[in-house]
Write a protein that binds this DNA or RNA. Structure first.
Lengths: 375, 375
DNA sequence: TTGAAAGCGCTAACAT
DNA sequence: ATGTTAGCGCTTTCAA
């Protein structure tokens, strides 16, 4: 029992309501819980008593017997990133309207925190989990959850080999189409700023994108970048791939600085995430280059500031809110006993061309395009 | 019991662990729950059995008897706003390290959703609540919670008359010091973009800031604006106060447009929130005015894009993460039976002067200041 | 140091 | 339509 300085009058239970209404506990429960048969007069009577006494259902007790908590968990990798903020908003809205509450945990891409988060959610008997795998996490804990029949929906990143629904964008395709467009604009030397995977960038990029346990969106987007170059018959120059030590703005600014300092510098840069974009933008501003005339920039995520910077920022937009809302709907469907094989849903991305991507220097204008969708 | 297509082998309970270890349930509980006396050999034995069977504590059952859920609720007004994202991150970090989980609800400033959120958290027996009051919510539901001894910490906005801790910034003071600085820079006609309160702006601003049930940061900041003008002996011109119908970028852009279209337009504008700032920034860009030479802009919240826009944006920075972390620490202290009168903590804000605030047109340079703290 | 027994507040068979 | 009974999985007296 909680105690505080005042009188912590504890709440009246169903027992007391039943007594006050002169019925059995079971009847009172039926009247209040909206199940089974109750005479309407009895119901009114019980409700009145409950109201008068200030009774509220004790959901913990209810969970105890039903085995359901009406709670889902959301394990996010980086809650301060606005992209996740949108995803979370989508999840919260759908969950609430379905009668579920959401426990949020922030793993900060730390596999240890991630394991703990899953374990705790498990112990708390959540009915289902929406999960953003950390870049280098392991899925064993999650698998135990799944084995016990707790539905899981992966979001933003997938884990191959886990029988779960997933709501994703096609990162390879999205990045590829962005780079294809840069190539159309005449760019041949295109830089890539992505998270460091260690070792030879090109090889690691490919390995990582194929490695089920890594779940790196950055790697997948890097693969899209490679695919676009290859598709256009352009050479892949490892010097143009600038890995960042951490997923921070500062690291990205440094990586961009490296690219801009090359003897033959790129004429365009793709960044795989909105934080990295911010750093690259900053580095380009500082470089003194004509922007975008001498250097184009294409980022990920259509955040609200992209239209007030100069040049306005071209981006590959992801539907953050929808990703969350869709994931939550998937989960609720499972909780409502939908029983189908795990579905992988790809949501549309959109290449939004603004001012930061323009023709490569000394290039003739290609066919004009303004907005195009990628699936 | 949950069921899914596979074999949903349900978890072994304490009973089974006890049986396997050849001890009573009570002893097993003591060994696993780290309380009471257990022989170390017994404990090892029980632990081994628990490990082998894959037993995990059933926290719902534990809550049932202890009366504590190790869960806190966070009722946020606008989870998509990056400011709340930071606050939430602070809450999550502190809560986790204290062994608490967090249920997040998003009220979207809707009083009805807010009431529901509090009721549901109550029913779910959260141990405490961190609460951002909606602008026009009512506190009755919250008061019932408090009356039952559930500790509450208010964040960002206060509700006078509620015996609860609060973690705030001094909105009046922060806004006042910002406007004082603008006045130092020679500005005499300073516009204000804030949320609409209905009726005569000046009067409503004052009423609202004093009205315990409104909890509007916008109003408090507006009062700071008025105070600064009065303190400097400047006239208050209602035409310079531009209320926005909603708390959106578009509404702010429109409001800013109105200010810029005045026959004698302001030479500086204060916006009371980062979303409104975005709209004002956009409107100024569109207006064709020299920015900041002809019009200064001062916003709230030091978001990451403020340094890449041109001119870079001067802001009144709030410590979003700290606000959350501090609120969570307050709450955990209460949950740890700290029993003191409700504390109202004011965290420091900082006026960060960048390029968007400059001397008023035709004004001699005043004493240079770069950064100053306000309490 | 351990065990037996009671019970947290509720729902769900089953009986009436 | 209502009541009786038996738990859900755990903690917590109390006694041994």
């Amino acid at each position: 029992m909680r105690a505080q300085s005042e009188t912590p009058r504890s709440r009246p239970t169903l027992n007391e309501v039943a007594a006050a209404a002169g019925v059995s506990r079971a009847t009172a429960a039926r009247a209040l819980g909206e199940y089974g048969y109750v005479h309407s007069a009895t119901r009114a009577n019980v409700r009145e008593a409950a109201e008068r006494l200030g009774n509220r259902p004790h959901r913990i007790a209810r969970s105890m017997v039903t085995g359901r908590t009406q709670t889902i968990g959301f394990v996010g990798a980086d809650m301060e990133n606005p992209f996740f903020g949108r995803t979370m908003a989508g999840i919260l809205d759908v969950a609430r309207s379905g009668g579920y509450e959401v426990i949020i945990t922030n793993t900060q891409e730390d596999p240890e925190l991630e394991r703990r988060a899953v374990r705790v959610l498990h112990e708390r008997q959540v009915d289902g989990v929406i999960f953003t795998p950390a870049q280098f996490g392991d899925a064993s804990q999650l698998r135990r959850l799944a084995d016990e029949g707790v539905p899981i929906v992966l979001v933003d990143r997938s884990i191959r080999g886990l029988a779960a629904d997933a709501v994703l964008i096609d990162n390879v395709r999205a990045a590829r189409s962005g780079v294809v467009r840069l190539i159309e604009l005449g760019h041949a030397r295109i830089g890539l700023i992505t998270n460091d995977l260690g070792g030879d960038p090109v090889a690691r990029l490919r390995e990582t994108a194929l490695d089920p346990t890594h779940a790196s969106t950055g790697a997948a987007r890097g693969v899209g970048y490679l695919a676009a170059l290859q598709g256009a018959g352009l050479p892949i120059d490892p010097a143009l791939i600038a890995p960042t030590a951490r997923f921070t703005r500062e690291a990205a600014a440094e990586a961009a600085g490296r690219l801009l300092g090359l003897r033959v510098r790129p004429t365009a840069i793709l960044t795989v995430d909105n934080v990295l974009t911010l750093g690259a933008f900053e580095a380009i501003q500082r470089s003194g280059l004509e922007f975008p005339e001498q250097i184009s920039l294409l980022g990920f995520d259509d955040l609200d500031w992209t239209t007030i910077v100069r040049p306005t920022l071209s981006v590959i937009a992801q539907p953050g809110y929808d990703i969350g809302a869709t994931a939550a709907r998937r989960l609720l469907a499972r909780l409502d006993h939908e029983d189908s094989p795990g579905q992988v849903l790809f949501l549309d991305t959109e290449l939004i061309e603004r001012e930061s991507t323009t023709n490569a220097p000394n290039t003739v204008v290609p066919t004009p395009t303004t907005r195009r969708r990628t699936r």
